[in-house]
Nucleic acid binder design. Structure first.
Length: 507
RNA sequence: GGGUUGGUAGCUCAGUCGGUAGAGCAGCGGCCUUUUAAGCCGUUGGUCCCGGGUUCGAGUCCCGGCCAACCCA
């Protein structure tokens, strides 16, 4: 980013000119009387205010000038007049650039066209911008720049900023919800000698002083369960997981996960928790339980109307969802359906009665991709993932998954080939799994050893020792926060809810 | 990993059949004291992603590479 151009050179020259006049263009401090929004909200004709922010527009009128100043709260118009400021300050003011930060003092008034504004009496330059901002009307459209230099995206596209402010609210409301129910928030290690709690490829790193390798965590689970053993009965963590796998619209190598565990709970109590929590968050952040699907708007400058800039997402791109309802209705109660019933519905009532070979053939005929080395349960799993999950737009708890899929959950007493688990699917994606957690240390060891099977992953022996000390029966959930945000904020790509999504470094 | 699309001024984008590189915004200069995508006049600004090739001549055609988005695996 060390390219220069004439615009940067001009701004550097202006900076030097300001310094030559004895002005410091990078002030340490300026104390506004309030935000731009507050100034507008507490309007009184002639009231003296001071605001600070970035100049985002200017309209010069000869011996007077309007500029827009923006802070996080919004925009405020400032009206400057040469005869009020005086020749020298006016000259400085007139040569301010878009992107500069200023502090402005003056009295509130309303213009002819009815806009609340400040009649400028004095100003200071708080920070000179040496690079020009993106174009004011179209905003910033280049996806690569938007993701690599998100500050420009936030600066130029108010819709984008709004999404991230709301993501912050979502996480705050999740915390409020869990704290109100007596859950304790904790932090557990991100660097783990044995990455456990999920089946995923980890990132590896090395600790010099200890002289050993660590892995970045792929899940929070095993440490939170140690806390159940230790007597923290209601516990949660919101934190980053890392998985060394492919990137896509739905996957970022680092992503944010909520896991919560409740002693003496089970998968049913956790379903209630998930349903109540997501409804609570939707009410607080989205103002209701009906979420417009794919309401993602093309980022553009604030007052923009529809433009046909090239990166609007085509309806036909969102394959199975395209013909689905456009409103996600989170109103309780949510549908609950057994995994096997959903599979039978889609793949034939006798699906679980026919031979594994025939299942494989049928799965293939249905259009699922079946690798040669898939075990029988994986064949069914592929059918579920490919043909069923994408159709679950409205919130659905899929329960009673085959035990092979979930080694950390307890068997269902009424069907021991399945486990007491749910996958909460919304918007065609798995958003939140939950289990009745396995607390039998001997059973747990067998299941983990069986799962490790092929690649012989190391077992987390300390976790098993902890279970041997006794873990209370418990329910647990995990919620992919990024995907929850996608659903609640109408975004089609995980990169649009992660501030700095992973991209390949550019030379 | 495979396919599709894209990469041109600071930004948003045009660029016809291969024939001197274009617009709007931003910038600079001029006019303008209630504008709001202010307006009017003038004007600066280019490694056409990178590297090869074809050609008298390549932003454009061919080959290779880089980056991104989307789709598929």
């Amino acid at each position: 980013m060390d390219e220069t151009n004439s615009l940067i050179e001009q701004r550097k020259a202006k900076l030097a000119a300001l310094r030559a006049r004895g002005l410091d263009p990078f002030k340490n401090r300026f104390t506004p009387t309030g935000t731009c929004a507050e100034a507008r909200k507490n309007y009184a004709e002639g009231r003296e205010v001071a605001v600070a922010g970035r100049i985002t527009a200017h309209r010069a009128m000869g011996k007077s000038m309007f500029i827009d100043v923006r802070d996080q709260s919004g925009r405020l118009q400032i009206y400057a007049q040469k005869n009020v400021l005086g020749d020298e300050p006016w000259n400085v003011f007139a040569h301010l650039d878009l992107g500069d930060f200023i502090g402005a003092r003056g009295k509130l008034f309303t213009t002819k066209t009815g806009e609340i504004s400040i009649k400028l009496e004095s100003f200071v330059i708080l920070a000179k911008a040496l690079r020009p901002p993106p174009e004011k009307w179209h905003g910033l459209a280049d996806t690569e720049i938007r993701y690599r230099r998100r500050y420009l995206d936030l600066m130029a596209n108010p819709d984008v900023k709004e999404i991230f402010l709301r993501r912050s609210e979502i996480i705050r409301e999740i915390r409020n919800f869990l704290h109100a129910r007596g859950y304790v928030e904790v932090e557990t290690p991100m660097m783990q000698a044995i990455p456990g709690g999920a089946a995923a490829q980890p990132f590896k790193t090395h600790h010099n002083a200890l002289g050993c390798d660590f892995y970045l965590r792929i899940a929070l689970e095993l440490y939170l369960k140690r806390l159940l053993v230790g007597g923290v009965d209601k516990v949660f963590e919101i934190g980053r997981n890392f998985r060394n796998e492919g990137l896509s619209r739905k996957h970022n190598p680092e992503f944010t996960m909520l896991e919560a565990y409740q002693a003496y709970g089970d998968y049913e109590s956790m379903m209630e928790l998930v349903e109540e929590m997501i409804c609570h968050v939707a009410q607080k952040v989205c103002g209701g339980l009906k979420i417009e699907k794919g309401s993602a708007r093309v980022p553009r400058a604030e007052s923009g109307v529809a433009s046909d800039s090239g990166f609007r997402r085509d309806a036909e791109n969102s394959t199975p969802e395209a013909c689905a309802p456009q409103i996600i209705d989170l109103t309780s109660p949510w549908r609950r359906a057994k995994y096997k019933d959903l599979v039978r519905e889609k793949a034939g009532a006798d699906w679980f009665e026919v031979s594994p070979a025939e299942r494989r053939q049928r799965a293939h005929d249905l259009g699922a991709e079946i690798a040669k080395d898939y075990e029988d349960f994986e064949v069914t799993g592929a059918v579920f993932e490919k043909l069923i999950e994408p159709t679950l737009i409205q919130s659905t708890f899929v329960t009673h998954l085959p035990k092979e899929l979930v080694p950390l959950a307890k068997l269902s007493p009424d069907d021991p080939t399945t486990v007491e688990v749910f996958e909460c699917c919304i918007n065609g994606q798995e958003i939140a799994p939950g289990y009745t957690e396995q607390n039998d240390p001997i059973e747990q060891r067998e299941r983990l050893e069986h799962q490790a099977g092929g690649e012989q992953q190391k077992l987390d022996e300390d976790f098993l020792v902890a279970l041997e000390h006794g873990m209370p029966p418990a329910g647990g959930i995990g919620i992919g926060i990024d995907r929850l945000c996608m659903m609640l904020l109408g975004q089609e790509s995980i990169r649009d809810v992660i501030l700095f999504p992973q991209l390949k470094p550019k030379s």
